[in-house]
């Protein structure tokens, strides 16, 4: 309700450009409010997946090449989403959306693959068994991300 009052009052008291920037604000705001929590979680998963896969690829790549490469892929996706969320703006929002879709497809595909063909996975990845080793957060995170980024979509007017 206060929001509405402020907007109604704007045309009389403020120049047009000020209203313009008001309307544009949600676009830049994908990394604030609930977005701040999302940035934090993506940053944590970026650090976790990156250090884990880098260490595993460097020390024992031969033991389980597929899982380690998939972990590295997950790390890259997480890093991309984190950067996009921090940067903000419409282009970054679209990048983050694409990242979240990739992430969701990845966790579903790798999750199913790891359940059907455990032999291919001598060691686990971030996305094994739909992210069970990480409390299923890898499965929940892209869904929450997609919902948040859709909500932050610039208004049609």
């Amino acid at each position: 309700m206060p929001e509405r009052t402020r907007r109604d009052a704007a045309p009389a008291g403020r120049p047009a450009w000020a209203r313009e920037s008001d309307a544009a604000r949600p676009r830049a705001g994908i990394g604030t409010g609930p977005g701040r929590l999302l940035v934090t979680l993506y940053a944590i998963f970026t650090i976790g997946a990156t250090s884990r896969s880098a260490y595993q690829i460097a020390t024992r790549f031969d033991e389980a090449p597929l899982p380690y490469l998939l972990s590295a892929l997950a790390a890259a996706v997480y890093a991309g989403i984190t950067v996009a969320l921090v940067r903000g703006g419409e282009a970054a929002r679209r990048t983050a959306l694409a990242g979240c879709v990739t992430e969701l497809v990845g966790v579903l595909a790798v999750g199913t693959w790891s359940v059907l063909d455990p032999v291919a996975f001598p060691d686990t990845t971030v996305w094994s068994t739909y992210g069970m080793g990480y409390l299923f957060i890898p499965l929940v995170l892209p869904v929450v991300g997609l919902l948040w980024l859709r909500r932050a979509e610039p208004a049609a007017d």
Partner: peptide, 21 residues
């Protein structure tokens, strides 16, 4: 790290970020 984020985010979401960290 999350303490600094919650300094920048003076809403309930700052608290949620610290809880997550």
């Amino acid at each position: 790290a999350v303490a600094f984020l919650s300094l920048a985010e003076r809403t309930r979401w700052g608290s949620a970020t610290v809880a997550a960290g």
